[in-house]
Design a protein around this nucleic acid. Structure first.
Length: 134
RNA sequence: GAUGAUCGGCAGACUGUCGCUUCCUGAAAGGGAGGAGGAAAGUCCGGACAGCAUAGAGCAACGCACCCUGUGACAAGCGGGGGAUUGAUUCUUUCUUGGAAUCAAUACAGAAAGUGCCACAGAAAAUUACCGCCCGCCCCAUCGGGGCGGGCAAGGGUGAAAACGUGAGGUAAGGGCUCACGGUCGCAAUGGUAACAUUGUUGACGGGUAAACCUUGUGUGCUGAAAUGCCAUGUAAACUGUCGCUUGAGAACUGCUCGUUCAAUGACAGAGGGUAGGCAGAUUGAUCCCGGCGUGCAAAUGACGGGACAGAUAAAUGACGGUCGGCAGAUUUUGAAAAAGAUUUGUCAACAGAAUCCGGCUUAUUGUAGAUCAUUCAUA
RNA sequence: CGGGACGUGGCGCAGCCCGGUAGCGCACUUGUAUGGGGUGCAAGGGGUCGCUAGUUCGAAUCUAGUCGUCCCGA
């Protein structure tokens, strides 16, 4: 039996970005990785809640609340299944990261596309965090 | 049976893996139970609830408009019953007019308080007079024509609309001038809770428009969950200016005025600083559904019995599969055909996502069980 | 959650309050001046007044409903 805990694909309350202050800071000073039809905003900080994320879809592109909800759920689902590698890396380095995924496309995406693009975004983010020194 | 219209119910079911959220349980790990709609939408109305004074007065502003009644509901909305008007169908009657029944629709107070407007056409769009009809006088003079003064509103023509309508009498010609029938309004009586109806009438005859201003009646105090109360964090009972300290600055969330109340470790403004988190409000309430009983013409309602009801807050209710079932297509077997069975593929819908709650209205919309009505076909 | 504004030729706007003729600028077409173009001059075409009902003799205008676009409020 290993001491390592069983890897769980969770996305609970403490893993989501909920503070109004942090979101304002992220939008004011965060860096951007564009990958159409997505944009990723991120900001590295030394505090420990290792990884917190948020999702947004513009009302301008999707007038109906049903469509916005669906896109946000798809993004969260794809993120939930792929974020553990990044999280472990950050915990080893003892630093935190806030990130915000914005969907900028105008058509409803399907799950396969969202999954693939989210994976690429997280890979890119891994490289950036490793490049930036503590 | 088919087609169409209206009403109106449901919103595929069960399940695996990985997740989200609320509650319960547990020391913890974990376990258990619940988790979007008929419109959750638009925000077009009305409330509940909260604060401001116990919510006051007048003006202004805004809403509403046949009557009775039910609903949390005075008014509005919605439901029930009734009235009036309009339209359709059927029946009745001597053709019409009219009467009766059924169904449907109605933003159904007032144009006889006042003001405005009614293009073009037309003489005139509301104190009318172009062609015209009639009377008197004068002139030319053959019937007749012209001018002046006066009376008239029938006929012509215009228009969406023409001065109660039709007929008769009367008249110089005409005119509700008079009469008959009819219409509208007023008044009175009778019936009805009332809207209204019926009858009578030495009474009147005034075109339309109030979704033009307006008048009458009636309702509304204002603000709005970012309301409101509490806790936490933090500074500053600091600074500047103006006014005031009981003869009172100012405040009481209102467009104005008044009244009332509060008001002195003061009030307002400026600049500057802090927070932008949590709890309550807030999810079971005038709630909804079912049952028989009582009341009521009905809508509805009373007590009783049973059942149901999410609570997020950068915002949960999801992702990927499986089985059954429905629908559509293809292949194949049986069969003369209709049809039935098997295999397989696709699809599971449309409109759409709670944000304090409730009621109404409006709009969007898939498939299907059902009810009613109309048309048509078949059989008896 | 709560307020507010606007839809009129291809584009930007007026007309709406107080109802009868839809107009302005740019653009477009034709002609003309020029060797050709720009430019000037002259003439012309083009509008379901967002949509659906209603009021009225008559609606871009008044009323109701609806669709769309945009803005504001800690």
């Amino acid at each position: 039996m290993s001491d390592k805990p069983i890897l769980r694909y969770t996305l609970g309350r403490e893993e989501r970005l909920k503070s109004r202050k942090k979101i304002s800071a992220l939008f004011a000073a965060g860096k951007v990785i564009p990958l159409p039809p997505f944009r990723l905003l991120y900001q590295i900080h030394p505090e420990l809640p290792a990884l917190q994320m948020g999702v947004a879809v513009s009302t301008r592109n999707f007038k109906k609340a049903v469509d916005r909800n669906r896109i946000k759920r798809l993004i969260r689902e794809a993120y939930r299944l792929q974020k553990n590698e990044l999280k472990n890396s950050l915990e080893q380095q003892q630093r935190g990261l806030s990130l915000f995924i914005i969907y900028t496309g105008k058509a409803l995406p399907d799950y396969a596309l969202v999954f693939e693009k989210t994976g690429k975004l997280l890979d890119a983010l891994m490289k950036k965090t490793n490049e930036i020194p503590q």
